[in-house]
Amino acid sequence: MLLAAQSVSAADWVVSANDGKYQRVQGRDTYPDNAKPDTLTVLDASVLPPTVNQTVEVENGIQGPPQAAAISTDGKLALVAAPTRYDSATQQLQMDTFLQVVDLSAKPATVSRIELGSHPQAVAFDRSGHWAVVTCVDGGVRPLRVEGNKVTLLDRIGIAGKRLAGAAFTHDGQHLLVSLRDESGVAVLNLVDGHWADSGDRVSTGVAPYTIDVSSDGHWAVVSNVGLAGLANYKGRLLGDADSVTLIDVSKTPFRAVQQLTVPSVPEGVAISPDGKWIVAQSIDGSNLLPDNPGVKAHGTLTLFALRDGHAVKVNQVADGNSSQGVVFSADGKHVIVQFNVEHQLGLYSIENGKLVDSNKRIEVSGGPSSLRSAPR
């Protein structure tokens, strides 16, 4: 008797948080009546196009770095930050101060809240599944202990006097990188005797560091720097100037920035392939500006870099959506998912013959996608 072996591939979990109440119209913020609820879309990117596993109602907003959602390696738990509500009576956006814990193993999924005392920005899981973290606008990092579907808030670690943004654990789980959005630079936290502590080390970046991603080969981290547009209460008109992405060597301590890469304006998201071979930066590139602004453009731009001999080399650029947000690689490093905010879609791209190309395939989501992360790899 011949027995046919059936190969079963593991899921490649990705989550997209979607702001249902907000709509950008020709560069202006609007909050339409009878808006849809904010949602979390859970995707399996092990197949192409990725399949939608489930959609859960949460509270989320576009204001802040597009790393306000995360999913555990086993796909059973998600965290959602950046909770916002729009008060139509006062026409004011309310910034809430809780973290949402989504138990995806429950049928249907359940959502609970952890009060933080400050508006949360980015969330991240480590590869072991034992740790998570949330950054806040009060300059504090909140480490989280994860045990199954239970998430426990630990101490507050104050590392800045102003807003924090993106966060990412290194591949070995011994360090945490956090963007100092208003003060610039990246703070390095270390795991010491089972506790997280600020090492005091800082890594140079561009202006207003935002999102952070790390490679699974333990060598590289990348940081998007959104420039003057990312600073609090910045006065003056911005015209779509070039901004930057920072390449950091995390293969040995102390970590060091080794290259500053020029990209189009406001790189909301940046991702490095798990194998450390490719970097993709998603830049709004003037697509968020008013119609009379000389820098306005119809769509954003994806820039692909190849990592060769310890430095990054620009390969090509392709168009993406209007005011696009987060970007992630698939686990095999061959495909890229991008959030098209205005269009309420996820755009799918591939690396073919050494260049980034648009597959012209799209996934519809409920609301404007605002945060995007894959499970730790």
Rank of each mutant, 00 (worst) to 15 (best):
R127F: 03
F169C: 06
G166N: 09
Q174F: 02
G129V: 13
T135S: 12
G140M: 04
K150H: 05
L164G: 07
I157K: 07
I159R: 09
R142T: 10
N149I: 08
V146S: 09
R142K: 05
L177V: 10
H171R: 13
G173C: 02
D138P: 13
K162M: 12
R145E: 15
A165M: 02
V134G: 07
L154S: 10
W131G: 02
L176I: 05
Q174K: 12
G166S: 11
F125K: 09
G140F: 01
V134H: 11
I157C: 03
T152W: 00
G148K: 04
T152L: 05
S128T: 11
I159Q: 11
R156N: 14
G166V: 09
R156A: 14
A124G: 12
L176G: 05
C136S: 13
F125Y: 11
G173I: 06
F169K: 10
E147N: 14
A124L: 07
I159E: 13
I159Y: 05
T135V: 09
A160R: 10
R142L: 06
L176Y: 03
H175S: 15
T152S: 12
V133P: 12
I159P: 10
L153N: 05
A160H: 04
I157M: 08
I159D: 09
K150P: 04
D126K: 09
D138F: 02
R156Y: 12
A160F: 04
L177F: 12
N149Y: 02
G148C: 04
R127C: 12
G140R: 07
E147A: 14
F125A: 10
V123L: 10
W131R: 08
G173V: 09
V141N: 01
W131I: 06
K150Q: 13
L164N: 03
A167S: 14
C136P: 01
D172T: 07
A168Y: 01
C136A: 13
F169H: 08
D172Q: 08
V178W: 05
I159M: 00
G158E: 13
G140P: 00
G166K: 00
D126M: 05
G161C: 11
G148D: 07
R156D: 15
G158F: 11
L176Q: 10
R145A: 08
L176C: 03
A167N: 06
V141S: 01
R127W: 01
R163A: 15
V146E: 11
V123Y: 00
H175Q: 11
G139I: 07
A124M: 01
C136R: 03
A168P: 14
V123M: 05
R156S: 15
A165H: 13
R145W: 02
G139S: 11
G173K: 09
V178H: 13
A160P: 09
V146R: 01
E147M: 09
L144N: 08
E147G: 00
V133L: 00
L153F: 10
D155W: 00
A167M: 11
A132I: 04
R145H: 01
G166M: 03
E147Y: 02
K162W: 01
L144W: 06
G129I: 04
S128G: 10
T135C: 06
G139R: 05
Q174E: 13
G173Q: 07
D155N: 04
